[in-house]
Nucleic acid binder design. Structure first.
Length: 419
RNA sequence: GGAGAGGUGACCGAGCUGGCUUAAGGUGCACGCCUGCUAAGCGUGUGUAGGUCAAAAGCCUACCGAGGGUUCGAAUCCCUCCCUCUCCGCCA
């Protein structure tokens, strides 16, 4: 969330951020509520000070066995007043907090302003698109020919969007995950975490999925728990309500998890094969850094994600999301879009974002800087990578004229493990 | 799920028959003094958030797992919930 003090003194910047991000936050109501809250807090403090002072007098008189009835009756009135203000204060505090949670993060100045994805900025292209001496098939045909997927039975046991990877398909998926994890561990210096796939409401609010995106989440109502839409949620929240030392920073984590998304509102859009799923696998990178380091860390993380695509020899492009396509919590985001050689389009396989202190404020993650000052650290995360569309790109780029699939050389060691 | 014990400031730990404790004492940390260095010793300081102020100092308010209640006054009494540990039950 944004610092209320910042909002108070820079309402225009915040208002512009809300418009640029196509959000519907009610800034005026928030400012009015904040004003009211401060007034009530002042009155409360005054009365409390009086009560504390007179309580001392009462205590003294009682100890000296003197009569304190005058003070007692005076204080019973004050106590009643305090009770009324207290409950009004609780109410307004809740209102301010709730409204504050609906204010989006402010885009970084370098982010292009634009209404929707059409105005995203393609920064550069990398790698060569494979040329075929034959008519390439799309990933679903390749997968079917090689018995790697069973989508109908996945739909039967769970619903559409819940894929079954079969035989060599399952093994390939597992190899991709393991390869990416080991790459980040060994070449990029991340620390691996295995985390819960189910989190509570507070955790979902900490990273910014709630309250806005509740309908996109699978919810276990009996326990008020949510299936994670990304490992970002549990991993970023591991330090919630904690104070780290500057000596602990930076920290870099990588975690593999399945991800669960209801994808409400996107039915019928790009649904063929593995393009859009309710459950998919993803390796996620998360960083905790000092504020001064976050911009450099974003570039580093982008490079970390790109290294995976390079290792597979895939063609891709780097896109800087415009304000309208930026997520609620993000300050700046790069997407990596891999070239699907068979279907002839770019598919998003990674999203690398700097959240500034936005998530750290929500989740209350702080650190002590070298001067001993308490500050909110900055958080970042990036997919490294999400597997389904990577699988699409691999199937389409590595298909052979005879319909078989070549295994990318970097995956071979993971496909050939012996027991 | 059942029974018991417990959750206090960076850490340890007292307070828990309600008011000279709006948190003792210790450790750690910071600064100073002292000793040739280190250690020891001595002294001072030591949280977070909000408010007041041009700013700092100072002062005020809140915070003893969370929320609510009793009371003029709650770390201390009562209720609900959460978490940790031990034992029992169930179970991969």
């Amino acid at each position: 969330m944004i610092d209320i003090k910042y909002i108070r003194s820079n309402p225009d910047i915040v208002r512009k951020a809300i418009v640029d991000k196509n959000e519907k936050a009610d800034l005026d109501t928030l400012l009015a509520a904040d004003e009211k809250r401060r007034k009530l807090q002042y009155d409360f403090d005054q009365l409390k000070a009086q009560q504390n002072a007179v309580s001392q007098v009462i205590a003294q008189k009682k100890r000296a066995k003197e009569d304190a009835n005058a003070e007692l009756s005076e204080m019973s009135k004050v106590a009643e007043e305090i009770k009324i203000i207290q409950s009004a204060l609780n109410e307004i505090n809740y209102e301010v907090e709730s409204l504050l949670l609906t204010i989006p993060n402010i885009p970084h100045p370098s982010v292009p302003v634009g209404r929707d994805e059409a105005l995203n900025e393609v920064i550069r292209h990398e790698g060569e698109a494979r040329k075929f001496g034959f008519e390439p098939k799309d990933h679903l045909d390749v997968a079917t020919a090689n018995e790697m997927l069973d989508l109908p039975r996945g739909a039967k046991i769970s619903g559409s969007g819940f894929p079954i990877y079969t035989g060599i398909g399952a093994k390939l998926e597992r190899a991709i995950i393991t390869f990416m994890l080991e790459y980040h561990l060994q070449k990029h210096g991340y620390r691996e975490l295995m985390v819960p796939l189910v989190v509570n409401r507070k955790t979902m609010t900490g990273t910014g999925q709630l309250p806005k995106l509740e309908e996109d989440m699978y919810h276990i109502s009996e326990d008020d728990l949510f299936l994670i839409p990304t490992a970002e949620v549990p991993v970023t929240n591991i330090y919630s309500d904690e104070v780290l030392s500057f000596k602990d920073l930076p920290q870099k984590f990588v975690a593999y998890t399945p991800c669960f998304r209801r994808e409400a509102g996107s039915y019928g859009k790009d649904t063929r094969g593995l393009q859009r799923l309710h459950q998919f696998n993803k390796v996620e990178m998360v960083r905790f850094v000092e504020p001064e380091q976050s911009e450099a860390a974003l570039e580093e993380m982008l490079a970390d994600a790109e290294d995976i695509l390079k290792a597979f020899g895939l063609h891709y492009r780097v896109v800087s999301l415009c304000t309208g396509d930026l997520s609620f919590a993000s300050q700046k985001t790069y997407d990596l879009e891999v070239w699907a050689a068979g279907s002839g389009k770019y598919l998003e396989v990674s999203s690398v974002s700097n959240f500034g202190e936005f998530q750290a404020r929500r989740a209350n993650i702080r650190y002590k800087d070298p001067e001993g000052k308490m500050r909110h650290l900055h958080t970042l995360n990036g997919s490294g990578l999400a597997t389904p569309r990577l699988m699409i790109a691999i199937l389409e780029s590595y298909q052979q004229a005879d319909g078989s699939l070549e295994i990318p050389s970097v995956l071979k060691p993971f496909m050939e493990l012996r027991v």
